[in-house]
Nucleic acid binder design. Structure first.
Length: 274
DNA sequence: TTTACTGTTGCAGT
DNA sequence: AACTGCAACAGTAA
């Protein structure tokens, strides 16, 4: 599911459902998803209260008493809350038993998701080590810093926006949407963009991610029913998944190529490489 | 039946 | 140092 708008939607759901609850027990069925090892992980979490659920980029942060539980959903991670019996499912990997006989379940078909417990004091260092860029808001996302980093890089703009160092939260869907909205070819090198183009990308990143949060994310490919999975942003996409359809601006057929190993949708007439 | 694809990130290799 | 390709995994579609 998760780019920033989907993660934010899940965060809002979790905030309502688990804030103020105490983690009674933790069961991890896939040990290599958690850091440090399972025993320490479970031992630290048991007895802690979930005081708050925050988000940074695509990371979910459960604020506990002395620690933070940092959860990344990667490609297919989901949270489900059960109030009685938990059904059998081979993709349920982590179980958090909460105080009111409710169980928070982490489901992940591909087992790419990660959990890390860190000390509250180490949060800053954690995200610095990840080289995580600013949040995509007018307050946090500095235009001059963005321009300076672009001018220093010979990466293709799409790959550059995906690497989370310029700004956090973009993934494959919203990068394609941002570049279409900005009239930029995904393979254009960062340093060859004009300042006006950089400003446009900066503006569109903020606008599109804000809109996607308001639409509660995009639910494409399968699934429903998890926390916050009833998004409607898929109805507002202009290029992602539109291969073979006509560009809404110029009627040219949308093309799909590979850029840095990722499927990439663009309009070959609107988005010209300079 | 194979092969390619999938909303991500980190690491090995150049 | 900066960048690329691939692996982690499981399912689906062609």
């Amino acid at each position: 599911m998760p780019e920033l708008p989907e993660v934010e939607t899940i965060r809002r759901g979790l905030e309502q459902l688990v804030c103020g609850k105490i983690i009674k027990t933790v069961d991890v069925l896939v040990p290599n998803m958690v850091t440090p090892n399972v025993d320490i992980f479970s031992k630290i979490l048991e007895g802690q209260m979930i005081n708050n659920v925050r988000r940074r980029g695509k990371y979910l942060i459960f604020e506990l008493d002395a620690y933070l539980l940092i959860s990344h959903l990667r490609m297919e991670g989901k949270y489900l809350l059960f109030t009685d019996e938990v059904p059998q499912n081979k993709h349920f990997h982590v179980f958090f038993k909460l105080d009111t006989d409710t169980i928070l379940v982490y489901q992940d078909v591909r087992k790419f998701g990660t959990f890390e417990v860190i000390l509250k004091a180490d949060e800053k260092a954690f995200f610095k080590q990840k080289k995580l860029g600013p949040e995509p808001t007018p307050e946090q996302f500095d235009l001059d810093g963005f321009i300076n980093k672009l001018l220093c890089s010979s990466k293709m703009i799409k790959s550059h926006l995906l690497d989370q160092t310029l700004v956090s939260g973009l993934g494959n869907i919203y990068v394609d949407e941002v570049l279409w909205a900005s009239y930029i070819h995904p393979e254009q090198l960062s340093r060859t963009l004009t300042i006006e183009q950089m400003k446009q990308i900066h503006y569109q990143i903020i606008r599109i991610l804000k809109m996607a949060v308001e639409k509660r994310g995009a639910t494409i490919r399968t699934y429903r029913n998890a926390l916050g999975e009833d998004g409607i942003m898929q109805n507002y996409l202009n290029v992602y998944g539109k291969t073979g359809q006509c560009c809404l601006r110029c009627n040219t057929v949308i093309n799909k190529i590979k850029v840095g190993g990722r499927g990439t949708h663009f309009c070959p007439k609107c988005q010209i490489k300079q």
